[in-house]
Amino acid sequence: MTAMQDMLNDPVANFALSIADDLLMLGHVQGDWTGIGPILEEDIASSSMSQDDLSHALMLFEHLGNRFGLDADVIAYERSPEDYRCCDLVTVPDEFDWAVALTRRWFVAHWAAPALERLGTSDDDELNERCRRLRSEQGLHLSYLDDWMRRLGAGEGHDRMQAAMTSLAPQACMLFELPTGLDDEDHRSRRDEIFEAWSRATTAVLTDAGFSVDLTMPSEEHIGGRRGAHAKHFVEQHTEMNEVRCEDPGASW
C-alpha cells in the first residue's frame, strides 16, 4: 500500500484532512479576492486571514507528511478529487458577491475552531500542540467575522446577507458530514458535539444581527465532499489550483 493510501485509511488523518482541506480550499478561493475587495482596509484584513487559512492547512499537511512520509505539497495538490475531504461549501462559487464570500467564510470559521479543539485531543502531542496554535489564530477570525455579521444585520446589508445565508445554509450543514472512515459511534457523538457548539455560536450571532437561518444536521444518506463526492465546482477549483504544476509534472517551482 502506498503512503497516500495509508494516510487515507487512517481515521485521525481523515479528520485532520477534513479541516485542512476546508482551510486549504477556503484560503484558495478567498485568495482570489485579493485586490478586488469592497474596501481597501478590508481587502488587506481578508488577505491576512486567507494566509492564515493556507498556513494552517500547510501545518496540518506537514504533520501528516511527517507521519506518513509524504511531501506537504503533494498532499495539498496531488490527490485525486475524491480523496479530498473538504465540504463543498468552501468552493461554492461566489461570483465576487461579497455577501456570499463573507457568509461562506463565517460558517467555515465557526466549524474550524471547535473542530480543531476536537482534533487537538488526539493521542499525538505534536498534533495537539499544532491544533492549539491554529485554534487560537482561528479565534481571531471568529471575532473579526462575527463583528462584520453584526454590522451588516440592518439596512441594505441585511437583505444581501440574508439571501447569502439562506442559499448557503444547506451546504453549510454539510460541514458535519462524517468523513470517510469515521463512521462509528465515537466519531458520531464527537461530531454531534461540534455541531452543537457550531449552531449555538452561529445562532447567537444571527439572532443579534437579525438574521434567521434553519441549520439542521444533514441526513446520513446525503453523501457529499467529506466522503469524496464533490460538486463540479470543487473539481474546477482543484484543476485550477494544479494548472501550473500540471504544465511540467515533477518540476520544482
Binding site: 481597501l40 482596509e41 478590508e42 488587506i44 484584513a45 491576512s48 486571514m49 481571531l140 471575532s143 473579526y144 463583528d147 454590522r151
Partner: peptide
C-alpha cells in the same frame, strides 16, 4: 479609514 474606532482597531491588527 474606517466608520468607527472599533472596526479601525481590528483592521489595524490585520494590516
Amino acid at each position: 479609514n474606517a466608520p468607527d474606532i472599533a472596526l479601525a482597531v481590528s483592521l489595524a491588527c490585520e494590516h
